[in-house]
């Protein structure tokens, strides 16, 4: 195992840390489906489950950046599919505000992303994580990352 691990670390280098907020009903299930389908993805995302994307507070998002997140993902059910009727519609509106604040803080737009992923879209989830990770690898660590944080 150690030999294999050694080669991977040598070739892959820095791995960003991405905080992904997932709603219980869709995107968290999408992440589960990615697992069930064994859709391999970079080990960059740390998922935090909430019941609805509508619960995701700017407080959570910006705290994640202040703690050292290289990217924050806001994910939920597809519009029209919200388990709570229209929580994701509210997320969409709130997200615009989040984008503006992120912009003012000098956070590149790649570092804050919104995506609707259903519980069956495991491959989409994996591709999303892969894409974001690749984008962030190009950008390097977040400018807001405190020193000494891994």
């Amino acid at each position: 195992m150690s030999a294999e691990a050694a080669t991977t670390t040598k070739t892959d280098g820095w791995e960003p840390k991405i905080v992904a907020f997932c709603c219980n009903w869709c995107s968290y299930g999408g992440a589960d489906s990615a697992g069930m389908g064994r859709f391999q993805q970079p080990a960059s995302a740390r998922i935090i489950r909430v019941m609805c994307s509508g619960r995701i507070d700017p407080l959570h998002v910006f705290n994640a950046f202040l703690e050292g997140a290289d990217a924050v993902l806001v994910t939920g059910c597809h519009i029209g599919d919200c388990h709570y009727v229209n929580g994701n519609d509210k997320t969409k509106i709130k997200y615009k505000y989040l984008e503006n604040v992120a912009h003012e803080l000098g956070i590149e737009k790649e570092r804050l992303q919104l995506n609707w992923i259903s519980a069956s879209e495991g491959e989409k989830f994996a591709n999303f994580i892969r894409d974001v990770t690749a984008q962030i690898k190009k950008l390097g660590p977040s400018p807001l990352k405190p020193e000494g944080v891994a």
Binding site: M1, E4, A5, T8, D32, R38, A43
Partner: peptide, 21 residues
């Protein structure tokens, strides 16, 4: 805590990173 669907199953060939995650 989900360390199977969200970790071991999706990082099958990156054992060290999966352990850290």
């Amino acid at each position: 805590v989900n360390i199977r669907d969200h970790c071991s199953w999706i990082h099958m060939w990156e054992k060290e990173k999966a352990t850290e995650k």
